Amino acid sequence: MPAVRRAPACLASVIAGAMVLASAAAARADFVPGGEGTGSETQVSGGQHQEVISATAGAVVFDRSRNGSGNSTGPVAAATHWRPPACYYAPKYTPEQLERTLEPIWAAESTGYQWDAEQRAKYVEGHPYKDFNKDKAGEGYWWDSYVTPGREGDPGALDCTEDIFWVGTDDDPPADVPQAITPEVLAQLAYAEIRVPATEVDLAPENTTKVNLPTWAWLDGATFKPVSVTASVPLLGIQATTTAEPVSVRIDPGTADAETYPASGVCELRDGGIGEPYAKGRADETPPCGAKYLRSSGDGSYRLRATVTWKVHWTGTGVDEERSLPDGVFGGEQDVVVQEIQAVNR
């Protein structure tokens, strides 16, 4: 579908007002495909109120039951400049809903005669759609853009500039609309929902160590385990599950006067864990993961930073094998006090 001219900037506020009217009129026996994206909507069928659950993000529903949870978790950030889409297209209106949304806007004449006339020609007069495709009710939906939650102020949220378009129930969305919902786009949206544990490594000695004494570092294998989020559009019968697995931790001692183990500072996942817990009697051994400070921190401390790299992959509807997404990283800092070893001369 070729790019087409969008409405004037003032249309956003006009549509918002129109949607209030439309939602009041939506208490009818037609399905609300995407709703407002803010909760649930009620429709009436046969005199009975039925609850139609709209999605957490427009037409997209997230299953976070296998995600990281709690106050000590945070989002992974792609190690590259890549980011999940800030906007996307998904089903939003039935033919009657689109009519109830656009007609009040045109009647208000707030978007200009020329634009209104072009839109009426497009959706009503057969260039290319006729009467909002009401003769195709039940055979497809009108798709429109959504802004990914949390990305409202992102410049990328303005990238979805296509006019509302029709997609038949048995058709794929237009191939030249890259943000149209597909399993791959769902996987990317699920990526943005991934939450992983705060990165604080266990240290031995804990918090306070000595100059030239190897400091062991490791991650709790029970805490740092794979997490995943599934994104789906029930209306379309498509889904994708994005999984993040910890693969390594990079240790930055917080000072140039230190050595890391291994020398690269990157401790790889081995035998289900990263690093190795310290055991009594191994103080003089070289740890598989850790650091050795060469100078005291004086009256202060060094800020050790540990950054975990998470390998991210996904699978979904119509996908036979796992596919990769950019690695994610999430780090944290902790204070390490380094003291001089006190010697007693006799």
Rank of each mutant, 00 (worst) to 15 (best):
G221K: 15
K122T: 06
V266M: 06
A198Y: 10
G273H: 13
A240C: 00
R5W: 11
L213K: 06
W143S: 04
C87R: 12
A78C: 11
I341Q: 08
E184T: 08
A29Q: 07
A55P: 08
G332E: 02
D284L: 14
L235G: 12
A157R: 07
S110A: 11
M19H: 11
S324G: 09
L304H: 03
D159R: 05
A117G: 15
T56A: 13
D172H: 13
V201F: 02
A55Q: 06
S301G: 07
T161Q: 06
A18Q: 10
D171M: 08
D299R: 12
F224S: 01
A258I: 08
T101N: 10
A256S: 11
W142L: 01
A86Y: 00
G272S: 01
A29H: 14
E259L: 12
G300L: 05
E109K: 00
P84S: 01
F224C: 05
G34F: 00
W106S: 06
A175I: 07
D163F: 10
L158K: 11
L213A: 13
E321R: 09
V329D: 15
G39S: 04
T94N: 05
D170P: 11
V249G: 10
E139P: 05
P214N: 03
A107S: 01
G328N: 07
L102R: 03
A59T: 00
V229E: 01
L236M: 02
T148H: 02
D154R: 04
L213Y: 04
C289R: 05
P104R: 03
T242A: 00
E268W: 14
P8T: 00
G300Q: 07
D220Y: 06
V233M: 09
W143K: 01
T215S: 03
D284T: 12
E245S: 12
P33F: 03
G265C: 10
G35V: 02
A263R: 12
G34I: 00
D159A: 08
G316N: 04
S13T: 05
D172N: 15
W115R: 12
P104D: 04
L186T: 02
Q179G: 06
A258R: 02
A279P: 13
A57D: 07
G112C: 06
V61M: 09
T260Q: 14
E125R: 14
A187S: 09
P8L: 04
E99K: 07
D159K: 02
Y93S: 01
